[in-house]
Design a binder for these strands. Structure first.
Lengths: 263, 263
DNA sequence: CGCCCATTTGACAGCTTTCAAATCGCGTGG
DNA sequence: CCACGCGATTTGAAAGCTGTCAAATGGGCG
């Protein structure tokens, strides 16, 4: 059942299995994809706006973020990505990249040639469907972010970002209780939520004072999930996580998590 | 070369041809898709958040918009769609719809069963690739909108919306000079840009006073494209319109358009 | 002619931004 | 082990863009 030889791309399989029912043959074909595994330092650009990209990138460890720079020089972060996420498909099917992708932390990734992906999709329809579905989930997150920066208060936006990254880390099997890694500075939180770092700082102080979160260096502890979720106006449906359906509206509290063994 | 029988889905072919090189066989297969053509009144919901959707929808005429409603009751418009756009693929590959799709005007659409699309994609890889690429362009627009509501001023956001819809109408072959149909009320412009209708009204007055645009009922005239584009911080690269490459950074002025015959 | 929705207008409150400047945290070098 | 350096976090005060709340005006349609 589990695959043997150098399963570098296993995070990719795990992800695609969430998006469609893959047969063993499908999974083997994915694992057999040609790829180059590498480590990259914090700050490294994976894609630059305007680039012509001919490969995609599977996240194995660490965090990256997509962003755009507007005319005034301000930066807008568009999404954050972690283990299992597949990025750069956009850029590889389209003419040129319309945004930047940059490492938020030191990362481990696998680069897969664009043509290998296209060939795979041509021969394994269910894999194609899974990858396509994954890009559609990507788009769903973008839509939620539009609503987040467009119609929520600063407090809600920031709390929402915490909820999203926490749940996605859980889904990727990265969590250990209510404690999550937190790769963003306050300035980056601002760039993700359309706020200034100064204001982010003040809102963060509020969330801490209310006992919703606790921050340490590079980590965050969610002390009160229920209230944080409410403060965030967060509904995880947009993440399209299978089996999250029932747990979603009211996700298990931190204490329940310990016994549920889901982490 | 041109196709004969009831080419209801021709707008879809024209769109997909922008996304990939389709053979005649590919095109015929698309035109042969089973579908139901219908007219729907302004305000009709095509997809509701939470729906389980089993069809997609090709726009033939009129405008629709996607939107979400946040906890406070405020609405955020996520995108506007016109002739040739294919919507509801998101909802048909994923479990349930994460946003609403509603008619902005009276519209003409063709509904295609989800399974027919999946079958088609399985048998015609280039069609699959074209449709996939089209959904990726969709995602690109979402990303630009995140940057728009997140990091631009009210004036830029609104001007940007005008630029986008103008260029997309041109690309769809809907325009007749610098005069475009404009299906949105000021309140809807606000919902699309994260502003209130009151403020939209004031900004609009500014744009008119500066001679950038002129609005009539349901229509807008772009009087000074170059300056509107500059006021909008608009760069059309994110639309991924073929051949717009060179015209993009500096698009032909209104006067040039008349002689270029591009409309 | 009258209703209803969209557009305007005014005054005022307020959430966020700006602009500095101080403090903190932490890896590095002496 | 401690000083240094630099980025990240905090803090303060003041300005400003945008929102809020009404109310008036305008335009289209039955």
């Amino acid at each position: 059942m589990l695959l043997s030889l150098a399963p570098t791309l296993r995070p990719m399989i795990e992800r695609l299995r969430l998006r469609a029912d893959l047969s063993l043959a499908d999974a083997d074909a994915v694992l057999a994809l040609p790829h180059r595994r590498t480590f990259l330092d914090h700050g490294t650009y994976i894609v630059r706006e305007g680039d012509h990209v001919d490969r995609c990138c599977v996240m194995l460890a660490g965090f990256v973020y997509r962003h755009k720079v507007v005319g005034s020089g301000a930066r807008q972060i568009l999404s954050v990505h972690l283990r299992g996420d597949i990025i750069g498909l956009q850029s590889s099917l389209l003419e040129q990249a319309d945004h930047n992708v940059q490492a938020l932390t030191r990362i481990e990734v696998a680069f897969i040639p664009r043509q290998a992906i296209l060939d795979l999709c041509g021969r394994y329809p269910m894999v194609a469907r899974a990858i396509w579905a994954d890009t559609l989930v990507d788009a769903s997150l973008f839509r939620e972010w539009i609503a987040n920066v467009g119609r929520r208060t600063a407090r809600q936006r920031i709390a929402h970002l915490f909820c999203e990254l926490a749940l996605r880390q859980e889904a990727a099997g990265l969590c250990e209780g209510p404690d999550y890694s937190w790769p963003m500075t306050q300035e980056q939180i601002g760039d993700a939520t359309g706020l200034t770092s100064v204001h982010v700082n003040r809102v963060l102080q509020g969330l801490r004072a209310e006992g919703l979160i606790r921050t340490a260096k590079q980590r965050v502890t969610i002390l009160d999930w229920d209230n944080l979720q409410e403060a965030a106006d967060f509904n995880c449906a947009y993440l399209h996580l299978p089996e999250a359906d029932s747990r979603c509206a009211r996700r298990p509290s931190s204490s329940e998590l310990a016994t549920a063994g889901s982490c």
